[in-house]
Design a protein around this nucleic acid. Structure first.
Lengths: 199, 199, 199, 199
DNA sequence: TATGAATGAGGGTTCATTCAT
DNA sequence: CATGAATGAACCCTCATTCAT
């Protein structure tokens, strides 16, 4: 990569980082392109050389951040040598929750912007080279031989929604209880959902 | 004087209705007060005679709509003569889901705006006379004698979050499956959550 | 005066009082007719039954307040039995300064709004019955027999402008010195102006 | 780059000029930013690239205009070779009065906006590089060796207030007499004030 | 007389987007 | 590639004034 290429990549990343911080601090609607450019130390016009508009940038950001979460969990899972599919799923859930509990800003951003629709279209079906690992995790879980799941996609859907929506309130506001206190009940519910889907 | 009072009530309702439609069509951020007033056939300034700003109106709308849902379910439940607490909960969930399936716009609006935090502060703890029934339902469920629930608030929280987040995707986009196909799995999961909370 | 007449007079005075307070607190530009009406406990429309607009009310207020100041000084002067014209002028100046030093709000209002132009047109030449005494004081001073003044109107003009403009800064902000410290120099200057106008 | 800088300076000056004219014609309160921008032939938004708001612009204008007056008088005074401090003061007063008599609009603007408070804070104590000459004049007058003035600041204050307030009415409205007829009396009064402050 | 609901013009301000440099 | 001055549409909100009651 040439020096110019490097410089471009650096500017793009800088804009992404700045936008991420500002989206969290003030919300996407109250964040102006001027704000993002200023925080990145570039001119307003430069923004348009890299992104179409604020929402284009946001979508890229979501895919990027969510993908990172799953990759990190996947790597840790393999390191831990877990092979049972059910335990793999629980490990990933737990790892992601812990990551988000550490980084509440990230949770705030992802929760406000990530739905199952985007989850599937942007991440799972993505041809985006950045997010390949993520697609792998998903298909590996669904097409494995250990268990014979009934409607595995519904199962994953319910788990995803239950976990993400309860964690949002619990991690960010400790409502109705803090995440550590919620976890036993939550994982119990998840296990039950899985059990009910085994043929 | 009654004529004027009636006229005011009519205007206020008209503004609420117009705003509701526009919030759904374009989202609250892209809806201007000008838009709302125009759709209601009143002048821009008139809006401010009834509401402080867009968000004041939204909060009133959320409380109103959500309260209606629960009241309607409560009434139907009593008509049906259901007395078992667990069956009551499932009946209410089912009734609300059916209402929302009929009125996707309402679902869209409520989902985007109703969180567990608002759920508790606006509805449950509300001293708002409009929403009294709703508070009653909640406390009746928690303080009944039939069952001895462990952490009933966590239980209700998990049920609420699981149901609301899965229904959003399922009713609106039939993703991953349509609501009728999701229901068996969903109610099964709900029942399991309840079972695990019985002492 | 009938009961209705009394009521009308009362409302008018109430509007004048409310406006005076608000003009001082927030300035005339930031005071709305709504504000004035609300403070008086009457409806917005009622304002227009008594005054043409905000500025109509203000002019009436100025004439009224300024006239009061001079009347009060005149009465005190006669009580004190001062007969020498020069001493009369100095007595009036001193009395008004003391009144304004006691009532800084009044000073603020009058200074911002009273010019020599209004002074003459509204007060001196006024056929307004409320301000008759004031006109008398002015003509008495000019048409007396004790002294033979050269250009007495210029003399009064210079005295009025010197006193009013220096007092504003001195009473309100103690700049460059407080009024008690300014007085000796000021009265000395006034006496000198008078002396130079004696034929 | 110099072209752009020139253009910016031109725009800024154009806005200042337009505002000045409008402030005089309609008063600052009735002058909208829209008006100023339109008169300058720029878009409304452009105004905010140069000034924070209307009052920011006004303050810059006052300092600028008042400073010009004193500079012009100072230059003329030195050209005339006047060295006696008392004569210097009278020369400056006379020069400024003549300038203002020629430019009634300027007088109108300055009178409505310039008080002793602003006089001191904005002009005398200013670190603004534009107004340095002005500060010099003031300190030179106060700290000279020819005369030993008692309370020189009070003296200057009284002269300033007397001159500015009488000139306003006289120049603009010829009330009570036109400025040429007032001058003899006024300068006589000023000389007397100075005399009484010599130790 | 008195009301106060309704109006809608108009103000200040922000900001996405363009384009000459 | 990068800039940032300029734009002007669009926003929110206030308020003097009117008029049906």
């Amino acid at each position: 990569m040439s020096k110019i290429e490097n410089n471009k990549k650096y500017k793009r990343d800088s804009l992404l980082d700045s936008a991420f911080t500002l989206f969290i601090q003030k919300g996407i609607n109250k964040t102006s392109i001027q704000d993002i450019a200023a925080k990145s130390g570039v001119a307003k016009g430069t923004f348009y050389l890299y992104f179409k508009d604020k929402y284009d940038l946001r979508n890229i950001l979501i895919a990027h951040k969510a993908s990172q979460l799953f990759q990190s969990a996947d790597i840790a899972m393999h390191k831990a040598g877990i092979t049972d599919t059910i335990e793999q799923m629980l490990f990933i859930v737990d790892h992601i929750i812990d990551d988000l509990a550490q980084d509440k800003k990230l949770l705030l951003f992802i929760s406000k912007n990530l739905s199952w629709g985007i989850f599937k279209s942007t991440l799972i079906n993505s041809s985006n080279t950045e997010n390949i690992d993520f697609y792998d995790i998903y298909t590996q879980l669904l097409n494995q031989d250990q268990y014979d799941f009934i409607d595995p996609e519904i199962m994953l859907f319910m788990i995803t929604e239950l976990v993400s929506s309860t964690c949002y309130s619990s991690i960010l506001y400790n409502e109705p209880v803090k995440i550590e206190d919620l976890k036993p009940y939550l994982y119990d519910a998840v296990r039950n959902i899985i059990d009910r889907h085994i043929a």
